[in-house]
Amino acid sequence: MLHTVNKSPFERVSLDSCLRFAKPKDAILLYEDGVYGALAGTRFESTMTEALKKFRIYVMVPDVEARGMKVDRVMAGIQPVDYAGFVGLVEENCPVQAWL
C-alpha cells in the first residue's frame, strides 16, 4: 500500500504514526510540509535511516524546491518524484492512506 505524509515531523505525529503502521515493502511519499522529514542533517535522520531499511520512501521534488532546497539536501535512498511520479505510486499501490 501507499502512505502519504504531508506534515512536518517537527509539528505533528503524522510521520511517526505512518512509520508505526506501515508494513515492510510499503511505499511512503513525503510531500507538502512532509518533505522536511526527508532532509539530511535533521534530528529525524536516524529515524529515516532505519525506515529506509524497511520501506520504499519517496519525496516530492516541487515541494522540496518550493521550500528553498534542492534534491541534494534529501537523504540518500529517498527517491525524488514529481506529480506524475505520485500518480505512478498510486497506480502501483493499493490502498492509499493519507497521514494528515
Binding site: 500500500m1 503502521f21 508494513k23 490502498p95 492509499v96 492512506q97 494528515l100
Partner: peptide
C-alpha cells in the same frame, strides 16, 4: 495493537482519513 491494525489497513479497498 499496531501490527493488527496495520494488517487490517492493508486489506482495505478505500481508506478515508480524517
Amino acid at each position: 495493537d499496531s501490527a493488527q491494525l496495520a494488517e487490517l489497513m492493508q486489506q482495505q479497498d478505500v481508506i478515508l482519513s480524517f
